[in-house]
Design a binder for these strands. Structure first.
Lengths: 97, 97
DNA sequence: TCGATATTTCGATAATCATCTAACTATCGA
DNA sequence: TCGATAGTTAGATGATTATCGAAATATCGA
């Protein structure tokens, strides 16, 4: 089970997260990664979507830079995981408005 | 007191909200409006911030288009209010990831 | 009515960013 | 080792957008 340690976001990271979520395609990608029980490979994301590998790679990097996902190399593939603690820290901060 | 009716967001509105929140200045503005117990005038937002009236007006319109705030004209001033139900609907949707 | 204040609109500019193709690196299976 | 597959990087392009100054509109107080 996931730890419940509260993640503290800097202003910079908060802004990065907000920007990462603002692009509809990135939001879709994040949802897709989150839906997967197992970690997900980039190539699986590309299935059935008319996006170039380069663009997909770019979006994944943005999500990663924001801290919303992490990626680990597994042989030929990159495995992607949603960092829910970071997402929830973002939501937490927004809910204080 | 505020109603607890659940707001349903279309994909379009969801995207507008995400985009509105992605600009740090707009997030600051939203927080500022939210901090005020009473409704807030645009001019009060401008205090102590080196932003032009035109830019401020633009950001306020974006927040309004997204549904995150509403504005009512009160004499010389525009009074701004945070639409927390919309914000919370956004958070609700994001938390499902 | 006049001048000051509040806000919006317009048009322009500069910066950011999503997207692509092409070229590259790395790994796997035969 | 070779060819195919996965993913990244670089560089270019077009679209979006944050920003401003200036002009316009509306309202207030004197």
């Amino acid at each position: 089970m996931s730890s419940s340690k509260t993640v503290r976001l800097t202003d910079k990271q908060f802004a990065l997260i907000a920007k990462a979520l603002a692009e509809p395609r990135r939001y879709q990608i994040l949802k897709e990664i989150g839906k997967c029980k197992e970690q997900m490979a980039c190539s699986a994301l590309k299935e059935g979507s008319d996006i170039s590998a380069a663009t997909l790679s770019h979006h994944i990097k943005e999500l990663e830079t924001a801290g919303l996902i992490t990626s680990t190399k597994d042989g030929k593939y990159m495995k992607l995981t949603v960092e829910r603690e970071v997402l929830h820290a973002y939501l937490e901060q927004l809910s204080k408005i």
